[in-house]
């Protein structure tokens, strides 16, 4: 809106600044806390300006054992675990959903809609609801404490299948017919036409799924007992509960800071495609 009212301008700026402060303050405190030494972090009031121990904390967190009492792996290992899990979930979900949506939209087979609804119904069964049977299955398959165990149960996805179905339905039939006349078989059509046309949607979904995978807490907590396989989100919580010790806030906050970087990077890198994927209607 193009309006010129000074008071309105001041008020909107105030509201926006307030919003920014509310959102940014916890992140600022995280950053500040990661730059002080352990002693300073136990004193009140908590510091609001950065200290001088950033590099030191960074090294200790990333390559040290984190907290001595957690007897755990260094944080880089957990970052790697989280990264692997998030990527496996994102890629796995996208590939399976693409293929199943392709089958449901473009092939006629008996009980096609039945299968679609079966997939759709799993929306009502998130991991938390089916956690016991899923754990049993994963345990029996010997996938505890493995990347497969971490990612496979989270890969089956109705949302992504549903979304790709909608995307494929917006692609005009003539595109398929034209490809048929050009002599493209089903897989050719899939690779040459469908995938490039859903590129932006794939990117948008990748962002969402990567963050979804990265933020998983309950499932990794349940199936990883080996501290080498713990994910970063789980380990932050474990650090807080480190027994018989006051929490080392500087290290915990540094870990939290490190845990934020990959999702932020993914969002920033994919932002343009992400927005296009959610808003683009032109096919």
């Amino acid at each position: 809106m193009v309006e010129n009212r000074p008071i309105l301008g001041v008020i909107s700026h105030l509201v926006l600044i307030l919003g920014v402060v509310i959102v940014a303050l916890p992140i600022w405190i995280t950053f500040v806390a990661s730059t002080h030494d352990a002693v300073r972090m136990t004193q009140v009031p908590i510091p609001l300006l950065p200290g001088s121990h950033f590099i030191e904390n960074f090294k200790e967190t990333l390559f040290g054992t984190g907290l001595s009492s957690s007897a755990g792996a260094p944080v880089w290992r957990m970052l790697l675990n989280s990264m692997t899990m998030a990527l496996m979930i994102a890629f796995g979900k996208i590939s399976i959903s693409l293929i199943s949506a392709f089958a449901i939209v473009y092939f006629k087979f008996p009980f096609r809609m039945g299968f679609f609804w079966m997939i759709f119904i799993t929306l009502m069964l998130p991991v938390e609801v089916r956690i016991l049977p899923t754990f049993e299955v994963v345990a029996n398959l010997g996938m505890l404490n493995s990347y497969w165990g971490l990612s496979i149960p989270l890969i089956a996805s109705a949302t992504a299948t549903f979304m790709f179905r909608q995307v494929f339905l917006t692609i005009p039939d003539e595109m398929l017919e034209s490809a048929r006349i050009d002599g493209a078989g089903p897989m050719r059509f899939f690779w040459d036409i469908l995938i490039p046309l859903s590129r932006t949607n794939i990117a948008a979904l990748f962002v969402i799924l990567f963050i979804y995978g990265w933020n998983q807490y309950l499932w990794p907590l349940l199936i990883t007992t080996d501290s080498d396989m713990t994910t970063i989100v789980v380990s932050i919580k474990q650090m807080l509960e480190a027994a018989e010790q006051s929490p080392k806030w500087n290290i915990i906050m540094m870990t939290a800071l490190l845990a934020m970087i990959p999702p932020v990077f993914v969002v920033v890198a994919m932002q343009r495609l992400f927005v296009q994927g959610l808003t683009e209607t032109d096919k």
Binding site: P172, E174, M175, D192, I193, L197
Partner: peptide
């Protein structure tokens, strides 16, 4: 075949 909406591959 030439289609009504041309059916060109947009990408």
């Amino acid at each position: 075949m030439v289609f009504q909406n041309y059916a060109l591959y947009p990408h």
